[in-house]
C-alpha cells in the first residue's frame, strides 16, 4: 500500500533531524511537521472531518467546544502513522486514543486547578484552513514557571509535544473575527 505521508518525513535523515529538533527544546520538546500528508489524501480527510457527527459540550468555567469520534477517518489507527511516530518518539506507539474537535466563535478551554492533565505526549493533526492568529483559538502550553509555547494553526500539519509534569494546555478563546469559521483538528494523547 502506498504511503499517504509526505515521503520527506520517512527518510532516515529527516527522522534524525526531527528527533534532534525535539530534543533541543528543553522546556517544551516539540515539533510541527508541515505538509504532512500527501495533498490528495489531506483534501479527502479534510472533507471527512467536517462530516463527522459532532456533539457540542460546555461547562462554562472549564470549556466550550464540539467533539466527535475520529474512528471513521482511520488516521489515528493507521499503521503507517503509528510506525512513523514510534520511530520519531523512540518508543512503541501501538495505538492513539483521540477525538476530532471543532472550535468556533465563543469556544475555548480553560486551565483548571481541579482538572490537571498528567504528563504525556500530545499529537495534534490540524485540518484548519485559512486561520489567522487574530482569531484566537491557538493552543498555549504553559509550565509551572509560567513559561509558555503558542502553537499557531497550520493546515495539513502534525504537531508533536512532550508535555512534562506540570505542563498544562488551553485553547485561547475564539473571538468574533472568526465568525462563521471553524477550527478542526484531531487530538490524541500518549500517556507517559
Amino acid at each position: 500500500m502506498d504511503s499517504f505521508i509526505n515521503p520527506d518525513y520517512e527518510k532516515e535523515t529527516s527522522i534524525k533531524k526531527i528527533q534532534e529538533a525535539i530534543d533541543q527544546k528543553e522546556s517544551f520538546p516539540s515539533i510541527i511537521l508541515t505538509n504532512f500528508f500527501k495533498k490528495e489524501f489531506y483534501k479527502e480527510k479534510e472533507k471527512e472531518i467536517k462530516k463527522l457527527h459532532y456533539k457540542r459540550e460546555s461547562i462554562p468555567d472549564q470549556f466550550s467546544f464540539a467533539h466527535a469520534k475520529a474512528n471513521p477517518m482511520h488516521i489515528l489507527d493507521n499503521k503507517q502513522l503509528l510506525s512513523l511516530l514510534s520511530t520519531i518518539l523512540k518508543r512503541k506507539v501501538s495505538s492513539l486514543n483521540g477525538e476530532a474537535y471543532y472550535f468556533s466563535w465563543k469556544d475555548y478551554t480553560l486551565l483548571h486547578d481541579k482538572n490537571k492533565e498528567n504528563a504525556g505526549i500530545d499529537i495534534l493533526i490540524d485540518f484548519t484552513e485559512a486561520w489567522e492568529e487574530s482569531f484566537g483559538g491557538q493552543y498555549i502550553f504553559k509550565d509551572i514557571q509560567g513559561r509558555y509555547l503558542k502553537i499557531l494553526s497550520v493546515p495539513n500539519a502534525v504537531f508533536i509535544i512532550e508535555r512534562k509534569q506540570g505542563v498544562q494546555k488551553y485553547l485561547q478563546y475564539i473571538n468574533n473575527l472568526a465568525k462563521g469559521k471553524k477550527r478542526y483538528f484531531l487530538l490524541a494523547t500518549i500517556k507517559k
Binding site: 462554562p60 468555567d61 478563546y173
Partner: peptide
Amino acid sequence: QNTDFLLPHD
C-alpha cells in the same frame, strides 16, 4: 475593546 473578554469565574 473589540475582541476583549472575561470568561466565567466566581
